[in-house]
Amino acid sequence: MNTGLINNVVCFEGVSVRFGAVSALDNLNLELRGGELSALLGPNGAGKTTALRLLLGLTRPSQGTVRVLGGDPRRSEARRGVGAMLQDISLPPNLSVLELLRLYAALYPAPLSVNRALELSGLSDQATSRASRLSGGQQRRLSFALAVIGNPELLLLDEPTVAMDVQGRAAFWHGIAELRSGGCTVLLTTHLLEEVDRAADRVIVLSRGVIVADAAPGSVRARVGLSRVRFSSRLDAAHWHTITLPGDVLEGGPAGQFSIRTRQPEALVRAALDLDPALSDLEVSRASLEDAFLSLTGPDQAPTGALA
C-alpha cells in the first residue's frame, strides 16, 4: 500500500461551525486514513451533515482547517478525487439515468465506465429511465452511481441507505465492498448502528457537535451486549449503587423505579434480591441498539469516553 500518500485522506483540525447561536460542530479533530470505512453516527442535529458539507467545500468552518486529499475542499480541484451522495438532492426530472451518468463521467479526469457505475449501483435495468420516473430507493441508487462514477479516492455518503429497500441496501453494500477493494476511503453517516456494525472499520459517534466515541465497531457491539434490569424498590439510589459493578449505569426513575444497564445481569439480579427481598416488578431485557446509542449521546450522559 502506498501509505505515505494515502494517509490522512481527511483531516479536521480544531474545526468549529456555528450558525448564529447554534454550534453545529465544536472543536472537531478527526483524521481518516486511506482505505478505511468510517461511519459517522449520531442523532438528528448532531452535526453529521455539517461535517460532510465541510469536506465538500459547501460550508465554511467558523474556525479551524479542513483538508481533503491534502487540499482545500473549497477549491474545485480538490473534488477530483471525491464522490459524494448528499441527503437532500433532487435530480433534474427531464434527464435519463444514462444521460446523467455520461455527464458526470465527463466531469472527472479518470472516470469509471457508465456500465460499471450502473452495475455497482444495481441500476442496469433502469439505464434509460428518466430520473423522475425512478422510485425513491432507485433515486438513492442513482445518487450513489453519480457519487462513484468519478472513480473517487474518497467517498462521502450522507444517510445513503435511507429510502432503500432490502435489495437496494444489499446492492449498495456490495458496491461499497467492491470499491473498497480498489482502496477507496469511505465516510458515511447513518443512524442505523446495525448496518455499519458489519461493514465499518471505525465508528465515530457525534453528539451535539462533539465526538463522544471513536472506536472499532466491536466495542460498540460490546456495548450493545448490555442488558437492562428494571425493578421497583423502597430503597433509595444510594443503596443500589452499592451493588453495581464498574461499568454499570444506574438510573432512578420516579416513584422508586430503577433501571440498571449492566454486563452481568445474573449477578446483579442475585445481589438485588439479597439487598431488597421486597423488590417488585423485576424485568430483565437486552439493551437495544437504541440503548447503547443513547448511552453515548443522551442528554443525561456525560461523555465518559468509555469507548474511546
Binding site: L56, L58, L86, I89, P92, Y104, L146, G150
Partner: peptide, 9 residues
C-alpha cells in the same frame, strides 16, 4: 440540482 453539480470538480 445546483448543489449536486457543486460537489463535482
Amino acid at each position: 440540482w445546483w448543489r449536486q453539480l457543486q460537489i463535482t470538480p
